[in-house]
Amino acid sequence: MDLFIHQVIAGFATGGIYACMALAVVMIYQAIHHLNFAQGEMAMFSTYLGWQLLAWGAPYWAVFPLVMAISFAGGLAIERIVVRPIENAPVLSHVVIFIALFAIFNSAAGFIWGFTIKPVPSPFGEGALYPGAPIGKHQAGMLVVTMIVLSLLWAFFRFTRVGLSMRAASVNPESARLVGVRVSLMNGLGWGMASAIGALAGLLIAPVVFLEPNMMLSILLYGFAGAVLGGLSSPLGAVLGGFIVGIVENLAGTYIPVIGGELKLSIALFLIVAVLLVKPAGLLGRRTVQRV
């Protein structure tokens, strides 16, 4: 039983990271109705920026907000420069743009910083949280930070006018325009916020997975899985989905011996397919009638 609880708690910690990626994916999906597969590479690039600032001697707690702010501006700029112009283009144009962004960020990071793996120190320290604790100091810190950020985001969407405008713009862009919401600005904000959240996830997970240009690949996959599981139309669902994926991944790796570490990803994805067969719109998603 202890083992079970320990694994659930550890799953929560990584689940927080998946929840962030899932949320980032959903925020962009809500704005443009496409899955951004460059999301992980954007987050990876932000993480390198953070690593660079740390290497130059900046204090960890200054690097965090600074990198998130830079990523916000970067996400906004990407939306303005490459996504907005193809707003009404067919799906394939979006796919091509995302592949291009993916390749650009991946090779730029490799070109600037090299392809060798870099260790990243944890701001929370090494070792177990306390002797015999189920999780390490870093995982505990990760969990606390993601919980705080996710709660702040929830409050932002729930209680602020900008948050309400962003939700309105994604639920019904035409009506949003008719009440005076600047829908395209809201989409830009969505991209900015998504890339800042991705940066947060990257910075937090870097001490665990090490820094290298492909570090976010599997994390983005888990994020996608969480988003789809929770429902692409529901940010809350995406966060929930991310946590579930983290926990399931951990439990499967522990209790199903043949799976071990290697097949964890497949078992998580398998479970998700099973859920989607029963609830096609995801756990909290709404099936929407396609507008014409």
């Binding site: 006018r161 309400l164 405008s165 939700r167 309105a168 639920v171 019904n172 035409e174 009506s175 949003a176 008719l178 009440v179 005076g180 919401v181 139309s233 709404r286």
Partner: peptide, 21 residues
């Protein structure tokens, strides 16, 4: 608008707040 333009997943009160945005 034609078809009422409801913000379907938002609450009634949030819809009203949006009118005054």
């Amino acid at each position: 608008p034609e078809g009422r333009g409801t913000f379907a997943t938002l609450t009634t009160e949030e819809n009203l707040h949006l009118g005054a945005m």
